[in-house]
């Protein structure tokens, strides 16, 4: 167990080493992050401290609303997608077999990628928070409930990440569907606008999107901490469900790839 935990640090160090050799890609990633920020700044300039009716339940102006949505979205999506993307890369490069030959457990590999995704997500979070704080003077009054919901969301997204990783090994071309899922999820999760502005039949769909409970839960925990429990319970349930499904998919994917001999192909 301790050996496997140590390996997580080794994987993360390797990923940073490799990342810094891709100077152009690293710069492009950083510029992309800054460019996304322009949307935030643009919307902020348009709406300023106005509070549209739809935002009354959140007691937040649009900039604050947008800031929390953007942070939650970019961080949690980074956590979720990092493992399947990294696993796909290892399969394409042919390095997955070499790693497995080192007796490293597949779950250790996935956890390492997920933590690396957290670091990447953290980078964009810090940038967003800095702009929010210094440019728009936004102060997010996060409390213990916000952090609990955030932590549960990370675990849930890790579970979904494992599910996607399992599917990546299992059906290979899963990567192509991620942008589609990303757009659908973003639309129904209240990232840039409250779900309440959608027609009622579309609002029902949001209740089936796990990500909705993360974003909405974090918002509610800030304005009405007493209502946080509902989201904590739902998210705890989703954590258990997705970790179980994720582990199952991962193990099944591995078993299938080992039967097919396709660990080194994508």
């Amino acid at each position: 167990m301790i050996e496997e935990i140590k390996k997580i640090g080794i994987f993360i160090k390797r990923d940073f080493k490799i990342l810094f050799t891709y100077r152009l890609a690293f710069s492009a990633m950083f510029l992309n992050m800054l460019f996304n920020l322009f949307y935030f700044i643009l919307f902020g300039s348009m709406f300023g401290e106005k509070m549209p009716d739809a935002l009354l339940p959140y007691k937040q102006d649009f900039v604050t609303y947008l800031l929390l949505g953007s942070i939650g979205w970019s961080f949690l999506w980074s956590v979720m997608s990092s493992s399947s993307i990294a696993l796909r890369n290892e399969m394409m490069m042919g390095t997955l077999e070499s790693i497995l030959l080192s007796s490293t457990k597949i779950t250790t590999i996935i956890i390492s990628y997920t933590i690396f995704g957290c670091f990447m997500g953290l980078l964009s979070t810090v940038i967003f928070l800095a702009v929010g704080y210094f440019v728009y003077h936004v102060h997010l009054a996060a409390n213990i409930f916000t952090f609990i919901i955030f932590a549960l969301s990370i675990l849930m997204m890790s579970g979904i990440g494992m599910l996607f990783s399992g599917l990546t090994i299992w059906v290979k071309n899963i990567g192509q569907t991620i942008p589609l899922i990303q757009n659908i999820t973003m639309f129904f999760s209240g990232v840039y606008f409250p779900v309440s502005v959608l027609p009622s039949y579309l609002q029902k769909i949001a209740t089936f999107i796990p990500f909705y409970y993360s974003i909405e839960g974090m918002r509610i925990s800030i304005v009405s901490p007493e209502k946080s429990m509902e989201y904590i319970v739902i998210l705890s349930f989703l954590v258990v469900i997705f970790i179980i499904i994720g582990l199952y998919a991962l193990n099944k994917g591995m078993e299938k790839a080992m039967k097919e001999g396709s660990l080194a192909f994508y």
Binding site: K6, I10, R14, I18, M93, T95, S98, S102
Partner: peptide, 27 residues
């Protein structure tokens, strides 16, 4: 094991020593 297209089984973006260190540590 040295199998298949085994130069693919290494990290081309790490140094020779970097590859050896990574695999030594995880082993």
């Amino acid at each position: 094991v040295v199998a298949g297209e085994f130069t693919r089984a290494l990290y081309w973006r790490l140094t020779g020593r970097g590859n050896l260190e990574f695999f030594a540590k995880i082993r």
